[in-house]
Structure formats: C-alpha cells, structure tokens
Design a protein around this nucleic acid. Sequence first.
DNA 1: ACAACTCTGTCAATGTTTTGTAAAGGTTTA
DNA 2: TAAACCTTTACAAAACATTGACAGAGTTGT
Lengths: 324, 324
Amino acid sequence: MTGFNDDSAQYLISTVSKRSGVKSDLVRAWERRYQAVTPKRTAGGHRVYTDQDIARLKLLNLATSNGHSISQIAQFSLDDLKNLLNNEPVAITQPLNGITPSASDRIHLAEDYMEKCYAAVLAFDAKKLESHFENAIVELGSEAFIEHLLTPLLTRIGERWKTGELRPVHEHMTSSVIRSLTYILRNNNPCAANAPRMIVSTPIGQLHELGALLAAIMAELSGWQVTYLGANLPAEEIAAGVKFTHACALTLSLSFATDDHVVAKELRRLKKLIGNNVALIVGGRSASHYQAVLNEVGVLNIQSYGHFRQILNQLSARNMEQES
Amino acid sequence: MTGFNDDSAQYLISTVSKRSGVKSDLVRAWERRYQAVTPKRTAGGHRVYTDQDIARLKLLNLATSNGHSISQIAQFSLDDLKNLLNNEPVAITQPLNGITPSASDRIHLAEDYMEKCYAAVLAFDAKKLESHFENAIVELGSEAFIEHLLTPLLTRIGERWKTGELRPVHEHMTSSVIRSLTYILRNNNPCAANAPRMIVSTPIGQLHELGALLAAIMAELSGWQVTYLGANLPAEEIAAGVKFTHACALTLSLSFATDDHVVAKELRRLKKLIGNNVALIVGGRSASHYQAVLNEVGVLNIQSYGHFRQILNQLSARNMEQES
DNA sequence: ACAACTCTGTCAATGTTTTGTAAAGGTTTA
DNA sequence: TAAACCTTTACAAAACATTGACAGAGTTGT
C-alpha cells in the first residue's frame, strides 16, 4: 500500500562519512565484515544511505570509542545502541574522530530536518515524523534539537495554522508525537534528586500544548525536575499541582489570544493561590497580547529561547542558595 | 537506575579489565582455574562478557582484597557476593534454576504494583510513578501490564476522583506519565507496514484522556498502527485525521457523562463525516450513558478488555481480506 | 622444624583474530 | 574528463588465546 515510504532520504558515502564521523573506507569495511549497515544501491552500484543509517553509524562510532568491539555491536538496533550508551559509566564526549561538523553545518542540518519534519506534519504521517525526530536527536544532540529544530518547527506550525494550510488536528498529532519523545530526551540527561521543581501547563481556555511541551523539555534539559500537566487546567488545579510537588516555579504557555477575560482572571487567581514564593513564568505566541495582566500580576515573560534559559538558570541558582 | 537491558551489552576482555579492575591475565586465570566467569566466545575464540560478568568480577576483586580466598568465593552468586561484602552471614542462595512465575504470581505481582502506583499518584509523585511503570513493564510484560496493572489503576483513579480523594490534576499528571510511556510500549512490538490504521481521540467536551490512551496502547499492542490525537477534538478534526491516515477504525473514549447534547450531536456528525466504511468504536466509563445515540448511530461499544481485543482482531482480519 | 604441597598472582613465548587503513585498477556520475 | 565510487587484496598494529612456568605465602604431614 505504501511503497513510497523511505525514498525521501538518499545520501552517498562521502556525505555519510562527514555526518557520522566514520571514514568512508571504514563504513564499507563495517558493511562488508559485519553488515553494520545495508544501504541500497543505485543502478550503477553506488551505495545509498538513509538518515537512520547515519544515526546508526554515529552511535556505533561512539560505542567503539567507548571500548565496545565493533564486531559485537555492529548488528544492534538503534534502540539497543542508545541503551548501551545510556548505561555507560564513562560517556566519552571527546573529539573522537578528526571529523567534527562545524556549527554552520549543524544549523544547516537542522534546517534540513526541519523541512522533512514539516513535510511529515503536512502529510499527517506520525510514524515518519517520529522517525525523523529520533534521527535528529542522535545527530544534533538534545540541545540543538530543541533550539534549531523543534523551536522553529513549532513556530512554523503556528504560522501555517493561521493561514489555513494546517488544521487543528495537525497540531494535535504533532503534540502527541512530541509528547512521546520526552521519554528519550529525559533519559538523555537524568536530573539530580535535589533539582529545582517546576510545573508546566496551560490555563483554562488555552488548548494548544505545543508551547508548554517545548517549555517542559527545555526546562528538563536545563536540569529541572518538571511535572507536565497538559493543557487547559483551571487555576485551582494548577495551584494544587504546585503545592503537591513543592515546585518553586510554574510555567504557562499562552498560544491563542482570546478577547474574553478568562485568561486574565485565571492568571490573577493563580497568583493569589501560589503566592509570591513561586516564580510565575509565561511564554507563548500570544503572551504579549496579555501584557497588561502580566505586568499587573508580576510574571516573568519569556522573550526568546535564550531568555528562557537565562530565567531558568537564575531561578535555579537562587533556589540552590535557599536550600543550603 | 532505569533500563535493565543486559542481554544486549557485550564486551571483550580488555574493556572488562578496565571496568572491573581485574587484570586481563587474572580474569583468564580465574576462569581457567575456578570458572569464576564463563564468557561466551566469538567465532574466532575471543571471550565475550556481559554486564553481569563485569559486576561479578568487581565484587570478586573487592572480596579478595578484603581477605577472602578466590577459590572459595569464585562460584558465589552475585547476591552472595553482595552479602559477603556487607559483612552479613552468607546466605547461600538456592540453585538458580530458571523459575518462571506462575500466572497467579504474576497477577499478585501486578496487584502489588497497582498499590505502589496508586500511592505514587496520590502522593503526586510523577517520577516515582514512572519508575514503577517502567519496572512493571519489564517484570510483567506489555500484555499483563495493560490488563492487570493499567486497566485497574485507571478504573480506581476514576472512582477515587468521584469520591474526591483525587483531584483533576492527579489525572492530568497520570495521563502525562502514561503518555510518555507509550514510547517504550510501542518499541516493544514494532508494527508491520501494512498494519490496519486507527485514530484514537475523545470528542469535544470530553477532557479526560486516560481511557483514550489505554485504548491506543491496547490497539498498538494488538498490531495496529495507531495515531493518537489527544482529547477534546471537534468532529470535523477527528474526521480529517481519519481521512488523512486512511484509517479503517476510529476509537473514542467517553469518561464523563454530561446531560447536554454535545456528545450525541458530535457522534452523529462524526458518523456522517466518516461514512460506513470506517468502524466507529466507543468505550469508557460513561459510554453506557449514551446508549441511545450509540445504537442509533451504529457504533461498536466496548464492554471489557477482552471484548475490545476481540473487536480489534475481527476488524484486523476483515481489513486484511479487503487488502488482498 | 622442615620438606612437600597448594593457592594465587604474574609473566613470557608463540600463534591467531580483529580491525583500521591503503593501494591497485575498473566503473559511475556530473 | 575529473571526481567520487566500487571491489579485491593486502598489510600491520593491537588485542586475544593458550600453554607453561615461577615465586611468594600459607598449609599440611611427619
């Protein structure tokens, strides 16, 4: 039925070598000796690789430089390899091979993935979207994945939703996929037990959770212990979550600007319920629409990716002081 | 301490030596003389060790430097060695035959986990809840996890929510945790490319997604290719999702009984939009409350865990026929 | 007490396997 | 036509395996 599933990505061996960090000769040797990858061929016999192959080779390279013998791990699945490296006591992040992609290369790569992911969203292909995400996380690393792929992707989805190219259901599907990815991202950097805690949600009437998800992931990567509550919760419930977890920060995402006063009312109630000792952070496409209330209530308004990280670090530091 | 995937990792002797602190020569001597470890071999004869072997050698090394004679302790089990080092009297464990837990044991085990998980929900401890879930999946297997842990847990959460012991926010937190687990569950059994497709969601006004999540997971485990859309979607959006994915089934969860006519209206509209070729399945705590409409529209009403699986299999079979 | 024996870690000698790299010579691609 | 690929074959360093031996420490038997 769907024979056209994987013809999207095709790379020749030199590209693969650059991106994975494994020399061409070695890639061929690994294929010949252990079937580490099994690329398709062009009519003329040239090897044609997929994104998955690249992710594979990257992980294999990491694993071998970590002391594993290539013959033993060559046929492991992507997940096996990820587990293997996750359980490593020594996560060597040294310049393992001469080939280190430059910053501009990585950004270009991220843009590349962005297009592919957006195409998958447009085609409503959850499986393909997830697969692209997985590969991108391996290739870009969690940080760059968030900053250069996820953030711009969500921004674009927001735009296209306005123009009518996308429907609400596209956003729901994307949320769902990203939500299941949090598992991988979280596993990549387990947080400390004494990490500061945060609640992430959206107030009542705000049904879009992509922004909130992004905030949750970013906070986790910054070392926070995040409890994500999903979208559309009344102030009392959110406040209850804050109390239960003893969170020292609460982040809300406002994506959709409404003219009624629900959001304003909810924000005021929330502030009353959580008090002044819990930082209230608000971000999202439409946060500026509520500027007046934000100022009145006294919230930290996220301006950009970097700004959010800055806020997180400041709060984190302050929290550590209080603890000691 | 998460993943326990020990059957995947394999090391050669030098790595083992570095990790365990026992020189390669000595490792071989201990094997030759006392069978302290019994590694497998490569085709060429190289020793191949597991994580367990490394742990063993570490403990043996500690014990010998503590004055114990290697010949005496070489064949101790991992637990024996741990006891030994804790200065506890060595309780020699029984011959370790591969005892497979009986069915009743497993159900008991599941109940045990149920209590632990519910306690974590009540305490609003997402981290602990996730950890219990992870362990349960490994110990029980996906099937039993769903049937004997997740299903009763969600049922109980529904009950306690009514009595006021739990707040809505508890349910949101639980949904969030379960949602990120879908990643593990899905990876445990990757579905075929030609698997029948299904959309899972809840209609507008139905904000509780636990039931829908459960249905999605069950369908995935039954070999379906599921696109999960989250909760609270209007009929047009759900129908769009069905069209986009060419799904042959649509499952909705109705947890909350409302007296307005929104649900009834949405169901009628949905049926019109998706036509008769797409199976419409409805389940959830409050499905019976809408019996009249369900009959009128002609939906498959889920009665129980087993019943849902039966429906899934029938649809799956019918779908296969049509394909061929 | 003293010789004989066992336990244990270490080494050396010698041969094999693994694995990254490279050269030679032909083919495909742009 | 040049650059990039392909296959085959080869090579050498590093890592392993096996066998056998040796010496210090502790034990045993007489």
